[in-house]
């Protein structure tokens, strides 16, 4: 009789424990689903915001283009075509594309290595990318205009920029035209980058960065036949595509 009682007791405890285990597992699962739902919703809301912002911008762009067409049509009807508009457009796009030399206030960074070390392409890219992120509107490296498709890569003892080789053993001069009101803060940000780099690199391979704000920086144009402007692999898209 006592053995039977004990068996009932243990049986009951086992049953309760199993039920408890199942409830616990279900509880965890429900919590996980709730957390997934919340993440999905945030992701979707970000996506919706991103699409809405971009659509608004695209709408403005189309409106501007439509106004341009209307103006040209009116000019055509009145027999008063203003060719200066297209010349101004050409000049503007030429500056944007890097085909025209430009000048204004900016910063100069002279990049070199102490001792016998040679500078690596990644340091040059790092400074250029930092200047770009800081809002530089035109950048040159050793008087080579940096455009969207400018290559900066090491090849043995040189660094190739726009197809031109520069010795890694010599200093690299990076110039940038930046918003005048941000000149000081950009110099400060570059000093921070310099200190961070100095901490990262071994003491026997010290990087040397000379940063200065300049009243006038001249950034040369990139020649249209430069390798950076190669478009031989780019075909126009037909209307029906």
């Amino acid at each position: 009789m006592r053995i039977r009682n004990l068996m009932v007791k243990y049986g009951a405890i086992t049953l309760i424990t199993v039920i408890l285990g199942i409830s616990l597992a279900l509880q965890i699962k429900t919590s996980n689903i709730a957390s997934h739902e919340s993440r999905d919703l945030t992701e979707l809301q970000n996506n919706v915001r991103s699409y809405a912002e971009k659509n608004a911008e695209l709408n403005d762009r189309n409106k501007a283009l439509y106004s341009e067409i209307e103006k040209l049509r009116n000019d055509q009807l009145e027999g008063d075509i203003n060719y200066q508009d297209i010349l101004a457009e050409q000049e503007k796009l030429s500056v944007f594309a890097g085909l025209t030399a430009v000048q204004n206030s900016g910063v100069t960074v002279t990049l070199g290595m102490a001792g016998q070390s040679m500078i690596t392409d990644s340091y040059v890219r790092l400074v250029v990318n930092e200047l770009n992120a800081l809002g530089a509107q035109a950048i040159s490296i050793n008087e080579q205009r940096k455009v969207a498709t400018t290559e900066i890569r090491a090849s043995s003892e040189n660094i190739i920029i726009n197809g031109v080789a520069y010795p890694r053993s010599e200093d690299f001069v990076i110039k940038a035209i930046v918003p005048p009101d941000q000149q000081d803060s950009i110099v400060l940000a570059l000093e921070t980058l310099k200190n961070a780099l100095k901490e990262q690199i071994d003491s026997d391979q010290q990087i040397e960065m000379l940063i200065s704000a300049e009243q006038k920086v001249v950034i040369p144009a990139l020649n249209e036949d430069s390798i950076a402007y190669k478009t031989n692999l780019l075909n126009p898209v037909e209307d029906h595509e």
Binding site: L58, S105, Q137, N142, E143, V218
Partner: peptide
């Protein structure tokens, strides 16, 4: 996609004169 922002993208770029270009040295 946003060609209308080009004017802002090149806001601080003034066209350099021939003299200024000649003075560039590397």
């Amino acid at each position: 996609e946003t060609p209308d922002t080009i004017t802002k993208d090149i806001e601080y770029l003034k066209i350099a004169t021939d003299q200024e270009i000649q003075n560039i040295s590397y």
